[in-house]
């Protein structure tokens, strides 16, 4: 994807422990370090080590990024009903809403992309914890906001030692699912 980006906003929202912050870091690092554009990542989380609301935000641009948080999201990933209800209203009118069909039942929009993210993770790797990589692969494949080799490099660099293979598998499952979906952005 070569066109100049002024500001592209991605919000990953769900519960603590779902690995959304790590997914955000990986995406930002893939874009900024391996693709050479500009990216910034922020997070918001509760005091719990596991559970509670959690969100990661990634802003991508070819220029400087000042305000580090999402203003009007281009992409919203919601891995919980709560996150979907709370953040849907910040989504751009033509923004993309992606939900885990296993966790989000009430949809605020008929345009939402429903995907059994957790189930896909279990099928791909046997580990529900890799759902974050499935989601990351899907978003990236869909929006082409990051190149696939860069994303894979970033995953390998950031995930815990010994888990790269499983995480890459989950990432591929997500990316491949996006290939079938209509192109967005």
């Amino acid at each position: 994807m070569k066109t100049e980006i002024d500001r592209y906003e991605i919000r990953l929202a769900g519960a603590g422990g779902q690995g959304l912050i790590l997914a955000g870091i990986i995406l930002a690092e893939a874009v900024a370090i391996y693709d050479g554009r500009n990216a910034i990542q922020t997070q918001s989380y509760g005091p719990e080590a596991r559970g509670g609301a959690s969100r990661a935000e990634v802003i991508i641009s070819d220029g400087p990024i000042h305000y580090p948080k999402v203003m009007h999201a281009d992409v919203l990933l919601a891995l919980s009903q709560e996150a979907c209800d709370k953040y849907f209203f910040d989504l751009k009118p033509d923004g993309i809403l992606i939900v885990d069909s296993g966790h989000v039942e009430r949809l605020p929009s008929s345009q939402a992309l429903r995907l059994p993210i957790m189930q896909m993770a279990v099928e791909a790797t046997g580990r529900p914890l890799t759902a974050n990589m499935v989601a990351l692969g899907f978003i990236s494949g869909l929006t082409q906001i990051v190149s696939r080799p860069s994303l894979e490099k970033a995953v390998t660099a950031r995930v815990p030692k010994g888990t790269a293979e499983a995480n890459l598998k989950a990432l591929a499952a997500g990316w491949d699912a996006a290939e079938g979906a209509p192109k967005q952005r």
Binding site: I25, A28, N38, A39, P68, K69
Partner: peptide, 8 residues
């Protein structure tokens, strides 16, 4: 925000 911000 700045403490937890990640940027290049």
């Amino acid at each position: 925000v700045v403490g937890h911000l990640r940027e290049k």
